[in-house]
């Protein structure tokens, strides 16, 4: 069991929580509600990771004061695109944690991977991206 994989997951969760701020303000009401739910889910994962890493005797990495977004989120289309990418990136980090974990840690990583993949699919649907699914969620191609 290597804490590095969980630390990487925590850093990805910090970044995801940050990104949903600028995403949320550019969305329509229905999508903004989804964004709030997504952000809450990432906060729950973050809190669990902080606890778990502390329990393992590793100092959990703190969130940065701010993160550089890959592009300006100026409209709904950009917000949906970034939301999809955030979920894809977080899915990839959780997928990478699977071989490094066992038992309950692996179960958490798998649940997180599935949740991120489902949210990415929902964002693609809202953006009208087809197909809305990918064959291997979290696999970096």
């Amino acid at each position: 069991m290597k804490p590095e994989a969980l630390s990487a997951a925590l850093e990805a969760e910090h970044a995801a929580i940050y990104a949903y701020g600028p995403i949320g303000v550019r969305l329509d009401n229905a999508s903004a509600a989804d964004a709030r739910q997504a952000e809450a889910a990432h906060r729950t994962r973050r809190d669990a990771l902080v606890l778990r890493l502390t329990e393992m005797g590793t100092s959990p990495p703190a969130a940065a004061a701010s993160y550089t977004l890959p592009y300006k989120v100026t409209d709904r289309a950009a917000a949906l695109k970034l939301a999809t990418e955030i979920e894809e990136r977080t899915a990839a980090v959780w997928r990478a944690a699977l071989p490094e974990t066992t038992e309950t840690d692996r179960a958490s990583a798998l649940a997180a991977l599935c949740d991120c993949a489902v949210r990415a699919t929902r964002w693609r649907r809202r953006a009208g991206v087809s197909p809305a699914t990918v064959p291997f969620p979290g696999r970096v191609t």
């Binding site: 899915a91 699977l98 699914t133 969620p137 979290g138």
Partner: peptide
């Protein structure tokens, strides 16, 4: 196997 499980979860969305 994680990716396969996640893919099947996303299939339920479509």
């Amino acid at each position: 196997l994680g990716s396969i499980a996640a893919a099947r979860a996303t299939h339920l969305e479509v």
